[in-house]
């Protein structure tokens, strides 16, 4: 597994978006404050563990293909953000409008909610 991103990260935590960084095997390398608050899972609980443990319902075949695409093309890939297609459930009134990925650095992969 790749080295997690040090916590807290002033930049990632300041954003009003959920940001996670995962490696190609879905191990969580960062889980920002927005996600901590909105999912109820703390960074310390998530980091170093597989996303699979917490969110088995995600279509990992698709996720892997998207991760590969982003890393290969060095360009963001996107999920359709319709109501039925939310990446992970966020219990709140307003439904966030979009989800996108972007390759950070060389091999990490960040996910933006």
């Amino acid at each position: 597994m790749k080295k997690p991103v040090d916590y807290p990260n002033i930049l990632l935590d300041a954003l009003e978006h959920g940001i996670m960084i995962v490696d190609e095997e879905f191990n969580v390398l960062y889980w920002n404050q927005w996600l901590e608050i909105n999912t109820g899972h703390a960074y310390s609980n998530m980091v170093g563990k597989s996303l699979l443990t917490f969110y088995p319902e995600i279509d990992y075949r698709t996720l892997q293909r998207k991760i590969r695409t982003t890393l290969r093309l060095n360009s963001p890939t996107f999920y359709d953000a319709s109501l039925t297609n939310r990446f992970i459930p966020i219990p709140r009134n307003k439904i966030s409008s979009s989800l996108l990925y972007h390759a950070a650095a060389s091999n990490d992969f960040s996910l933006y909610y």
Binding site: T62, T69, L73, S75, T77, D80, T84
Partner: peptide
């Protein structure tokens, strides 16, 4: 389902535009 289709269309568009 509709969500799968939308997602697939977006994914292909994305690869085409990015490359």
């Amino acid at each position: 389902n509709d969500a799968d289709i939308y997602d697939a269309v977006i994914e292909l568009t994305n690869i085409l535009s990015a490359t």
